[in-house]
Write a protein that binds this DNA or RNA. Structure first.
Length: 496
RNA sequence: GCCGCUAUAGUGUAAGUGGUUAACACGCCGCCCUCUCAAGGCGGAGACUACGGGUUCGAGUCCCGUUAGCGGUACCA
């Protein structure tokens, strides 16, 4: 019987979707789609105080935008608390777990890391299974619990031997049982802990493949122990390499800001497919040179065997406004903008024009063909959708700024003070305002004035758009139309 | 501290079972396109495959060690 594929993405409700989390979600999603499986979203909200409606929404928004919507869920781990507790009690009854009456250690103000190390060093002497309550008769323990004495529930891990499991990415994993302490399953206040909860939920949801970040790799041994104690079959484990910030440090919103949040990419003009494509290549490759991969191709080509083991660095310069995120992601987004079907692009552009206050309803009515043509003209040199509303302003509105550098480069020649108005009047008298006619008029004027055509062409470009770069100048003029072009040629005199 | 994972140009990745001058993309630099460029075309620089030992006729690819980075180690997730 072929086992059906069921995978899950299980983020904490942090308020936003982290690019690392998005990559994990994506790999799960690709794997599910490829195997006609089920992709489940489960919010790990057992850290009760930190979770709220709003904290979950950011994650949902990010996933929806990326097109990674779950087939089942979102489920909330907190709603399964009773099942987690029940599982722990079953283990107590089976003698596989025990009540620990040791008073809870007081937390002090040192860092967590320091405390962990100190504790671990102390345990080095005593051994990890030296808990005095480990072998207390169950009946006695039950009596003490019944009398109201607080107790945590710990798993009895084997004293000697080796834990083994196979990871689809990292290969065979081994760990001495003596290295694994009797982990706490349920806190003395009755609250189930992470390791227990994930395992119980994954069993309950019949998860076939656990695909998650490799920060969970060593703890997987603990979870394997729980699966075994519960008598459940192990899922397939596949851990993914982490994604770092430049300098190989942890990529965090606190330290690195908005670049880590998926919705930032949506708001700053990314095409969802482009970000998906970029993310897919962080830690995975199809094995050949192809990098521009549609969703369909990703689903077809994805495989856990091709997942890389080394962490990937997400490369960006925090100071650079133009390269605010990984340059390759920006490049890839540009590739999507210039090659996607125009009919898909125009609605995206209109979204950003609305945001920039440049939208006119005519663009989706009688001027739709004009709008599509203009977008098509511009898209070759834009990298994000935001560019249409910012760099593209002169193409969609009459009030725009002249870039000082462009003025300096193209409008500083004194002769232009006469030539530009003259060009304006020649264009005015044109009966047909076409690429050919505008160009012929300009070139003959240049010849008469004994200046290079380039001087006039570049000057006209800056007069028409305020910029020094852009599409072919005659294309711009024709698309802008005779009236606006002439008007702008005249207006330019004021900034020269 | 202990345990584990990883290690190919600045970054992302290639180089099935060891076999010519380590490949591709992004980025960077230059040239061309004489209508610009943040577009396009062409080219270039950039890696003694972390370091040190082996095994082998031959290793980025196998073995051992070292170092570094990261992860885990909690009544956090």
């Amino acid at each position: 019987m072929a086992q059906s594929v069921r995978v899950r993405f299980a983020p904490s409700p942090t308020g936003y979707l982290h690019v690392g989390g998005a990559r994990t979600a994506l790999f799960n999603w690709l794997f599910a789609r490829q195997h006609d499986g089920v992709f489940i979203l489960r919010i790990e909200d057992t850290d009760l105080q930190r979770s709220s409606e709003a904290m979950v929404q950011g994650i949902l928004d990010g996933m929806q935008w990326l097109g990674l919507e779950p087939d089942e869920g979102p489920f909330f781990q907190s709603s399964f608390l009773e099942q987690h507790r029940a599982a722990a009690h079953r283990l107590i009854e089976a003698g596989k777990a025990y009540y620990d009456f040791t008073p809870k250690r007081e937390t002090d103000d040192r860092t967590v890391k320091e405390k962990i190390v100190e504790r671990a060093i102390a345990q080095e002497q005593s051994g990890k299974h030296a808990n005095p309550y480990r072998d207390l008769p169950v009946s006695e323990a039950l009596e003490r619990v019944a009398s109201g004495e607080p107790a945590a529930i710990r798993l009895k891990t084997p004293v000697s031997g080796v834990s083994r499991f196979n990871d689809e990415v990292y290969g065979p994993q081994e760990r001495e049982y003596s290295e694994i302490e009797d982990l706490v399953l349920v806190r003395s206040d009755g609250h189930p802990l992470y390791n227990l909860s994930v395992v119980v939920d994954d069993i309950q949801m019949r998860i076939s493949h656990v695909i998650r970040g490799m920060d969970h790799l060593t703890n997987t041994h603990k979870q394997v122990l729980i699966y075994q104690a519960l008598g459940a079959e192990l899922p397939v484990f596949a851990h993914l390499p982490l994604i770092f910030a430049p300098g190989r440090e942890k990529l965090s919103k606190r330290k690195h800001g908005e670049v880590v949040s998926v919705t930032t990419y949506r708001d700053r003009g990314f095409v969802a497919d482009a970000l998906v494509n970029f993310l897919a290549l962080l830690g995975w490759s199809p094995g050949d040179d192809q990098e521009l991969l549609s969703r369909g191709l990703l689903i077809e080509k994805f495989s856990l065997e091709q997942v890389n083991k080394a962490a990937a660095v997400f490369n960006f310069k925090e100071s650079d406004a133009r390269d605010w995120t990984d340059p390759k992601a920006l490049w890839m987004n540009g590739e999507y903008i210039k090659s996607m079907p125009l009919g898909q692009l125009t609605p995206m552009v209109s979204e950003f024009l609305k945001r920039a206050g440049l939208w006119r309803p005519e663009y989706e009515a009688e001027e739709a063909p004009w709008f599509a043509h203009m977008v098509d003209l511009l898209r070759a040199r834009y990298r994000t959708l935001i560019d249409f509303g910012e760099l593209g302003r002169p193409y969609f509105a009459d009030d725009f700024e002249y870039e000082p550098a462009a003025i300096k480069k193209n409008l500083k020649d004194d002769k232009l003070k006469e030539l530009l108005p003259e060009l304006a009047s020649r264009w005015t008298s044109l009966t047909e305002f076409s690429h050919e006619s505008t160009e012929a008029a300009l070139r003959s004027l240049a010849e008469e004035a004994a200046v290079k055509p380039g001087l006039l062409i570049n000057a006209a470009r800056t007069a028409l758009t305020g910029q020094s770069v852009g599409p072919g100048m005659f294309e711009i003029a024709v698309t802008l139309g005779k009236e606006r072009s002439v008007e702008r040629l005249k207006r330019a005199i004021h900034v020269m």
